[in-house]
Design a protein around this nucleic acid. Structure first.
Length: 416
RNA sequence: GGAGGGGUGGCAGAGCGGUCAAAUGCAACGGACUGUAAAUCCGUCGACUUUCGUCUACGAUGGUUCGAAUCCAUCCCCCUCCA
């Protein structure tokens, strides 16, 4: 069963994190050596502070780092304070808007928060550490950079990189600024190698070009072999990227998404994805996962509940996961109203259209009207038929009324 | 700087003076069927009011016309080729 010498790579393979490695054999030898000697390997995961929270789509590499740390290695989390000022062209058609200093600072705080849910930070040997490439880029001299780094890059080669090639093929503009992105990423890798002895970079497969930029620079400039390791892009059965729920991103930080909604995202995963998600989004042992994913038909719902609970536990803590679960059970299995549902305050006399608008379930009254015609809106589980209905005292039970849109979205109106 | 092409709803992409709130596809949403799944089928998909209707929208600003996404002018942005 054990195909690799290193514990880390075996876990990656077994749980479906393994997509591509710059030198599988070499990386395995290196990690095995570290694991044997008890000297942690250092690896990094980069992310640009373009938002103030990571979302489900970012979890894959985060979980890889989590395992990396569990295997006795040291994770570095790099935030691209400098590179965000440029914008990664990978997979995009347009230049990203520039971010103000305040927004960047705010985003970096948010990112650290996201990271810390999955990794243990601190000063210990295997504790995660946060670094910002702005620290080494902000004072860099252009000519010195061109001479020291630019000489190692061939434009011919750069033009063949996916991030550049696709942009050109699609006849979308690419600025010189963006063209330089891969040099900066390459430089990051080498900088971390110099500073922390970091020899591994872990990322999603869309970062392959940027990773090899770093490993090649390391080889040419420092004569050292750096390793890159990527995860596959996780898609659902329709081939779409994971991480969107009702058109909105599933955020990791609690200010952006409630634990209940986070829980529901995983609870509603497709049957075909259950095994894959258990491996990737939970810490459950493989034996347990194999048992769960073998469940069929209705029974697979048990696996989904466990998946949702475990995934929420990692990200939001056990307490929150339990509350979310209770709310889900009450709401869906017992037809009652769980306490963790989204809520607004309102009292009798409140128009039913306004109630849904305030709850954020609809974007306009017109939409609410349409949904009423389609039997899509409910008050205390009874379909609403009159769009001019106003809440009455009898609608409130124990000081709250339940309103629902469709089968999945439920919320509470509480008396003030 | 020169020549040509183009900017349409979340995306893709028709329309090229009235019948255009704008085809079609995707996405999204509601209903039916189910298992808080998938697939399928039906329906919805600018806002306000719902009955008529009103308003805001086709890069921006002006103009021509009874009437413009559609014509004209100026400006902005993008693409291709040339310098």
């Amino acid at each position: 069963m054990s195909q690799f010498k290193s514990q880390f790579l075996n876990i990656m393979l077994e749980r479906g994190f393994y997509n591509q490695c710059t030198n599988e054999q070499g990386f395995d030898d290196y990690l095995a050596e570290c694991e044997k000697s008890g000297k942690p390997a250092v690896g990094y995961l980069g992310s640009d502070p373009t938002g103030d929270s990571l979302h489900v789509g970012h979890i894959v590499p985060l979980m890889m780092m989590r395992w990396f740390q569990k295997c006795g290695h040291k994770p570095l989390t790099l935030v691209g304070g400098a590179t965000a000022r440029i914008g990664d062209p990978s997979g995009k058609d347009k230049l990203r808007p520039f971010l103000s200093e305040e927004v960047l600072a705010h985003n970096i705080i948010g990112l650290k928060k996201s990271f810390s849910k999955f990794l243990k930070f601190g000063d210990g040997a295997t504790d995660a550490k946060m670094v910002d490439n702005w620290d080494w880029f902000k004072d860099i001299n252009y000519l010195a950079f061109l001479r020291d780094i630019g000489t190692f890059y061939s434009v011919n080669r750069m033009l063949t990189m996916d991030s550049v090639k696709t942009r050109l093929e699609r006849e979308q503009p690419m600025s010189f600024l963006e063209f330089n992105y891969m040099l900066l990423q390459g430089y990051d890798f080498c900088e971390l190698y110099q500073k922390y002895g970091c020899r591994a970079q872990i990322a999603g497969s869309d970062q392959w070009g940027n990773i090899t930029s770093g490993t090649e620079l390391g080889r040419r400039k420092y004569d050292v072999e750096l390793f890159g390791f990527t995860s596959p892009i996780i898609t659902d059965s329709n081939g779409k990227k994971m991480g969107k729920s009702e058109g909105n991103a599933v955020w990791i930080n609690e200010e952006k998404l409630s634990a209940y909604d986070y829980f529901q995202y995983f609870r509603n995963i497709g049957d075909a994805e259950v095994g894959k998600c258990l491996r990737i989004y939970t810490d459950l042992p493989m034996d347990e996962i194999r048992r769960l994913e073998a469940l069929k038909d209705q029974e697979i719902n048990e696996a989904k509940k466990i998946l949702a609970f475990e995934a929420t536990k990692i990200c939001r803590g056990e307490e929150e996961a339990r509350k979310a679960q209770e709310t889900a059970v009450k709401t869906f299995e017992q037809g009652m109203a769980g306490g963790d549902l989204p809520q607004i305050s309102g009292s009798e006399g409140l128009g039913i259209l306004d109630a849904f608008l305030q709850m954020g379930f609809v974007e306009s009254k017109g939409e609410a009207r349409r949904l009423i015609k389609q039997n899509g809106l409910k008050l205390n589980d009874k379909p609403i038929t009159d769009e001019n209905y106003r809440l009455s005292a009898t609608d409130f039970v124990d000081g709250q009324a339940k309103i629902s849109q469709g089968k999945k979205k439920h919320g509470l109106i509480k008396l003030p």
